[in-house]
């Protein structure tokens, strides 16, 4: 039997690339914010789709729970919580609504889904997609905070669920997705050095297959320095 897999944020960027990689090899339930009609053409042929906006964590968990029940899936082999969103700019000018949304969509949604899916995940694997920003990023302060929170969640849960559910976190470096533009950050020429989402998906798949709890996927230092000018 093919393994059953849930991927959030699966309609663009790293999530879409991951879905494409696993298509045909796994039974996929993909979750995204946009309505089915808008994304149908880009989804892998056999994949199932559920609308679940991670900006509303409790509602998204209920929608995914219902989709799993409708499919009759009582177990999940792999869950990849990949959905993410960010805000970029001077942190003193970030609106309260943006701080709240960034924490909700990147961090609390993962807490809520991990909580809702705990029973289905027994014997399976929970993979959180973090970011190398988790060490701190002045232009992405709330995003960095949320991703650091994910790292803390993964470190605690991987110990708590040892022998029951394997919990991992993968921290991708800069990737050429739509996230930066959506966050209002102009990547400029540095973007040429960003990893294509397909390459990042390949590296994430490799991390999923390995035993290490935390995996950081980054370019060599000199490239990292080129794309993080604020670090100097």
């Amino acid at each position: 039997m093919k393994s059953r897999m849930l991927i959030t944020g699966a309609t663009s960027g790293i999530g879409a690339a991951l879905a494409a990689r696993y298509a045909g090899r796994a039974d996929l339930l993909l979750a995204g914010r946009r309505p089915y009609e808008e994304v149908a053409a880009t989804l892998p042929a056999d994949a199932h789709y559920v609308v679940a906006d991670q900006s509303e964590p409790e509602r998204a968990a209920a929608q995914i729970g219902k989709a799993l029940a409708d499919l009759g899936w009582e177990t999940l082999d792999v869950v990849v919580l990949n959905a993410g969103t960010g805000w970029s700019g001077d942190p003193a000018t970030e609106p309260a609504a943006s701080i709240r949304n960034t924490l909700d969509a990147n961090l609390f949604a993962a807490v809520t889904l991990a909580h809702a899916l705990a029973a289905l995940l027994e014997g399976g694997q929970l993979v959180l997609v973090g970011s190398t920003a988790r060490r701190g990023a002045p232009r992405f302060a709330s995003y960095a905070a949320a991703k650091a929170g994910l790292d803390g969640l993964a470190r605690a849960l991987s110990e708590e669920w040892r022998g029951k559910v394997r919990v991992k976190i993968v921290h991708p470096g800069p990737t050429a997705t739509g996230m930066h533009a959506k966050a209002g950050f102009h990547t400029g020429r540095a973007r040429a050095l960003f990893a294509p989402p397909e390459m990042m998906a390949r590296l994430i798949e490799r991390a999923i297959a390995r035993r290490r709890i935390r995996r950081t996927i980054s370019f060599p230092q000199y490239l990292a320095a080129a794309v993080t000018p604020w670090r100097r």
Binding site: L103, G136, A137, P138, S142, A144, A145, A148, G149, G152
Partner: peptide, 15 residues
């Protein structure tokens, strides 16, 4: 733990 990690890294980011 997640909430306190988030807080620590927010602080580092805004310094």
């Amino acid at each position: 733990a997640a909430s306190k990690d988030a807080l620590a890294v927010y602080a580092k980011s805004i310094r």
